[in-house]
């Protein structure tokens, strides 16, 4: 797990050959695995790329056990 950086994220986008409606769910899984959560910046960016509303994406993310929308730590 690594700290969220826009640059790392952009590389993930490149790896999957661009984000579309057809691969968004799989891609969000990759983001989750890379950073341990799906950061707000990512939601904004993929919303713009797919044309889905941020609400819809949050609605999905918050309904699955294995997705987190904020970083959880043991402090």
């Amino acid at each position: 797990m690594q700290k969220f950086k826009m640059e790392t994220y952009q590389n993930l986008v490149k790896d999957v050959g661009g984000v579309t409606a057809e691969n968004l769910f799989m891609f969000l899984g990759k983001v989750q695995e890379a950073f341990g959560y799906v950061p707000r910046e990512v939601v904004r960016d993929v919303a713009a790329r797919t044309g889905f509303s941020e609400t819809r994406i949050y609605g999905a993310l918050t309904s699955y056990r294995d997705f987190k929308v904020r970083l959880e730590c043991d402090d």
């Binding site: 968004l24 889905f52 819809r56 609605g59 699955y64 056990r65 294995d66 997705f67």
Partner: peptide
């Protein structure tokens, strides 16, 4: 992503559409 219901075909489809399963 860890939900039993995603084994149901429409729930699976919803999931791939980035919706609640």
């Amino acid at each position: 992503k860890g939900l039993y219901i995603t084994g149901e075909e429409f729930a699976l489809i919803s999931s791939l559409e980035t919706r609640r399963a």
